[in-house]
Amino acid sequence: MTRTQDRYSAEIDPNSRHRSSYTANNGNCVELAQVPAIPDAIAVSDTWYPDRPGLRGSKSAFAELTQAALTGKLTAV
């Protein structure tokens, strides 16, 4: 029986990593990557903590999160 890949266990394509253009050249930035086994999945990681797993979700969920942050609709609790 073959195990079905999910967005949390699937490998990230290291060649698809994109680092934020707002990096302060101190290694503390956000990085996005594709999850090839799940075409709609994206991984977001903090390069300050490379050994920690990245946050993973759908591309549309990430777009909604980004839009909420940019428009001030995302607030800290």
Rank of each mutant, 00 (worst) to 15 (best):
M1F: 08
M1N: 07
T2V: 11
T2S: 13
R3S: 13
R3E: 15
T4H: 08
T4M: 10
Q5D: 11
Q5S: 14
D6V: 05
D6E: 09
R7N: 03
R7S: 07
R7Q: 10
Y8W: 15
Y8H: 14
S9P: 00
S9F: 02
S9R: 06
S9I: 05
S9A: 07
A10S: 14
E11R: 08
I12C: 10
I12H: 01
D13P: 00
D13S: 06
D13N: 13
N15R: 08
N15Q: 11
N15Y: 08
N15P: 00
S16L: 05
S16N: 03
R17W: 06
R19V: 14
S20Y: 07
S20K: 05
S21G: 13
Y22W: 11
T23S: 15
T23M: 05
A24G: 08
N25W: 11
N25C: 06
N26R: 04
N26T: 10
N26D: 15
N26V: 05
G27W: 13
G27N: 07
N28G: 00
C29G: 05
C29S: 12
V30M: 12
V30Q: 00
E31L: 04
L32G: 00
L32D: 01
Q34H: 15
V35P: 02
V35F: 06
P36T: 01
P36I: 07
A37S: 14
A37C: 03
I38L: 10
I38F: 09
I38S: 02
P39S: 12
P39D: 13
D40M: 04
D40C: 09
D40R: 01
A41V: 00
A41N: 01
A41R: 05
I42M: 13
I42Q: 07
A43R: 02
V44E: 08
V44K: 08
S45V: 00
S45M: 11
D46I: 06
T47F: 07
Y49M: 06
Y49T: 07
Y49A: 14
Y49I: 05
P50V: 06
P50K: 06
D51G: 12
R52G: 02
P53M: 03
P53H: 11
P53N: 14
L55Y: 03
L55R: 03
R56L: 08
R56F: 10
R56P: 01
R56M: 08
G57W: 03
G57M: 15
G57S: 12
G57A: 03
S58T: 15
S60M: 11
A61R: 05
A63L: 11
A63V: 01
E64F: 09
E64N: 04
L65I: 09
L65H: 07
L65Q: 01
L65A: 13
A68R: 12
A68C: 11
A69F: 14
A69W: 09
A69Y: 03
A69Q: 05
A69I: 06
L70K: 10
L70N: 04
L70W: 01
T71E: 15
G72T: 01
G72P: 01
G72M: 04
G72S: 08
K73G: 14
L74I: 03
T75C: 02
T75D: 09
A76L: 14
A76I: 13
V77M: 09
